[in-house]
């Protein structure tokens, strides 16, 4: 473990790290993406697998297939989950892989010094979009429902205990857990003032229809709506790994003999 963090003072990643400290242990594997968020693997004293940019969710599923006893938490960025490698998010949810995807959503590429991501607001002025991004953002909460996630939640890095509670439930959930975390980036997109004013906690989980409505309350673009937090939705379904076959040791020699 590296005790010397290199995040900017005041970065939202600190709150996520502290929440994770409370809920991780021997069985945890942090599977990190690449970005400011990914450095968390160095700073937590648990098993970790720092993957490639965009591939943490794919690697995390391999880890779970390899050892069902591990609690896999994929710490990924918004660039890492919603841009590069978004297919892994979609399919992990579709197959109900028993992993937790925790998105450090600062709504910008931070480590590459500010460009727009899938959740940046329209008009986002940054290195590659000096006149403002022309793309409207994706609402990841709606995406979570569209891909049939069996656990959907949103937390806020400044509400550490609340977030820890969410992560604990996500890890305990048998199946695919989607945890979107609002993580302000003080260097490139300081959303603390907005979130501090707009977020509110809910007491979920809710029925699917109601949960979906909650997911759509804020579109990741406007600055007027309120932003609900909490566990929105939870559903019991067999997980992918549960349905995988048990392995036996297979003798190649015996197989060959049958191939006459």
């Amino acid at each position: 473990m590296n005790k010397n963090t290199t995040w900017c003072p005041g970065c939202g990643n600190f709150g996520i790290m502290e929440a994770l400290r409370e809920v991780t242990g021997e069985k945890t594997v942090i599977v990190a993406g690449i970005g400011c968020h990914g450095k968390i693997a160095d700073y937590l004293d648990v098993k970790s697998f720092s993957s490639l940019h965009g591939r943490a969710i794919a690697a995390g599923q391999g880890i779970k297939v390899g050892n069902k006893d591990l609690d896999v938490i994929c710490c990924v960025g918004d660039g890492d989950a919603y841009n590069e490698g978004v297919e892994h998010l979609v399919h992990a949810a579709k197959r109900n892989a028993d992993i937790t995807v925790l998105v450090h959503d600062n709504r910008a590429f931070a480590l590459t010094a500010r460009q727009f991501t899938a959740t940046s607001p329209q008009g986002f002025k940054a290195g590659s979009t000096p006149h403002g991004s022309i793309e409207a953002p994706l609402n990841p909460m709606e995406l979570a429902f569209a891909i049939n996630s069996t656990f959907v939640a949103r937390g806020y890095s400044a509400k550490k205990d609340h977030l820890a509670g969410i992560i604990r439930q996500a890890v305990d959930h048998k199946g695919f857990s989607f945890v979107e975390v609002l993580q302000p980036c003080v260097a490139w997109f300081n959303t603390f003032p907005l979130y501090n004013e707009k977020v509110y906690e809910t007491e979920g989980p809710f029925e699917k229809e109601e949960a979906r409505k909650m997911a759509s309350e804020w579109n990741y673009n406007d600055e007027d709506s309120f932003i609900p937090l909490g566990v929105f939705y939870k559903e019991e379904k067999p997980s992918f790994e549960e349905t995988l076959i048990n392995r036996e040791s297979v003798s190649a020699g015996e197989l060959l003999k049958k191939m006459i």
């Binding site: 599977v31 993957s51 690697a59 599923q61 391999g62 880890i63 779970k64 892994h88």
Partner: peptide
């Protein structure tokens, strides 16, 4: 990516 993850275990 998944292969590397499984190999790690």
């Amino acid at each position: 990516s998944a292969a590397l993850g499984a190999a790690y275990t």
